[in-house]
Each structure stands twice: as C-alpha cells, then as structure tokens.
C-alpha cells in the first residue's frame, strides 16, 4: 500500500510553512522601509550616519554608563563636537519627535527599547 495522500498533505504543509514569508507578502504587502526626516538646523550628528544607523544604541548605552555611573556629563564626539551626554537634551534637540523618528524604525523591526521606562517623552515637540 502507498500513502500518497499523506505524502502530498505533508508536502503541502512543508510548502506552507517554509514559504510563509512569500505567502504573507503576497496577501498583505509589507510597508516600505521608513525614511526618517533629518533636522535642518544642525548638519552633523554625534557620529556618521552609517554608525548611527547601526550602533546608536551602543552610543546611548555608553552615555548612560558615563553619566549615571561615572558622573561624566559631557563628551567630545568623533565628529569633533562637545556635547552633553543626554538623550532628551542632545539627541532630541534635533530628533524631537519620538513617534516620527525613534518609533518609525523601532516599530518597523519590532524593537522595543527600554529608554522610555525612565525617560519622559518630551511633550508637544515637533520639528
């Protein structure tokens, strides 16, 4: 006896699971990559755009350790600026809108950073 029906059912399940991203994108088209607005009044960030895109979380982490644990509040950035190591004062001075700047990419990739468990999101700010 042959179990052709069961074999075909198994192959169908396999195709359904393995190519799930293909079926998903065929039914619900994924939204495109978000483009965040860069500020107009300041030309330079604390590091190059490529570094900031990939490693901004490490910059913030180092700043947090320096300020909270070592009491050092200012730093000289690789771009040669002297800045206060502060998320709300320095970063959000330019990237003022959390929803349009931070959340755009974080939601796109299901990243849930814990910044806002301590920090308060600046109210009524927009750039």
């Amino acid at each position: 006896m042959y179990d052709g029906g069961k074999i075909l059912a198994g192959i169908a399940i396999f195709l359904g699971l393995v190519l799930l991203p293909v079926w998903h994108n065929a039914v619900v088209a994924s939204a495109p990559r978000p483009e965040v607005k860069t500020p107009t009044h300041e030309k330079h960030c604390v590091d190059s755009a490529a570094v900031m895109r990939a490693s901004h979380m490490n910059v913030l982490d180092q700043w947090r350790d320096a300020v909270v644990r070592e009491g050092v509040r200012t730093t000289v950035t690789p771009t040669g600026m002297t800045v206060s190591m502060s998320l709300t004062k320095t970063c959000m001075n330019c990237h003022a809108n959390k929803k349009e700047f931070c959340d755009a990419c974080h939601n796109y990739l299901a990243v849930s950073p814990t910044c806002w468990e301590c920090h308060v999101e600046p109210k009524g700010s927009s750039s």
């Binding site: 293909v22 994108n25 088209a29 990559r33 490529a50 990419c105």
Partner: peptide, 26 residues
C-alpha cells in the same frame, strides 16, 4: 552591526519577488 532596516528592505523585496539591493549592508 549593520543597518537592519536595510536588511529588512532586502528580505521583504526577496519575499515579494521585487528584489531591491540596499547599499552598505556590510
């Protein structure tokens, strides 16, 4: 690290058969 928004752009492009090749993936 790499810019994972661009990784996702590549992945979604591949899965929807409209491949795009983002710059600077590393």
């Amino acid at each position: 690290k790499t810019d994972i928004t661009r990784v996702k752009e590549l992945a979604v492009g591949l899965a929807s058969f409209r491949p795009v090749l983002p710059e600077g993936l590393g």
